[in-house]
């Protein structure tokens, strides 16, 4: 299957754990949840995918949203500091 290229941004603790604010990823099109699972393994994220808020192109999406080429995906982990 052809791969699609997407842009991924990390937020809050994910940014710290990934050691970067964003990266470009080429992958076989799948859901944002699966994209997260893949990148979580790569960066050793400690937040479970069920607690991530997924945004694509400035809109929050369900976790089964399937990414398309050129999508800008943002992973937002829960943040509670105050």
């Amino acid at each position: 299957m052809d791969k699609v290229e997407i842009r991924v941004s990390y937020f809050a603790s994910l940014r710290d754990q990934a050691g970067m604010a964003e990266e470009k990823v080429a992958l076989v099109s799948c859901s944002v949840f699966e994209v997260y699972q893949m990148l979580a393994r790569k960066h050793k994220f400690d937040v479970a995918g069920r607690f991530i808020q997924y945004a694509v192109n400035s809109n929050f999406v369900d976790r089964d949203y399937v990414v398309a080429a050129g999508d800008h995906v943002v992973f937002i982990p829960p943040v509670s500091g105050g």
Partner: peptide, 25 residues
């Protein structure tokens, strides 16, 4: 609507653990 259930506290850092600058707060 964003996250149906509050995540368990263990998966979220607090200012105590993570550090925070007064100006940001």
């Amino acid at each position: 609507c964003l996250l149906p259930v509050p995540p368990p506290t263990f998966c979220v850092g607090t200012c105590e653990e993570e550090g925070i600058l007064g100006t940001v707060a």
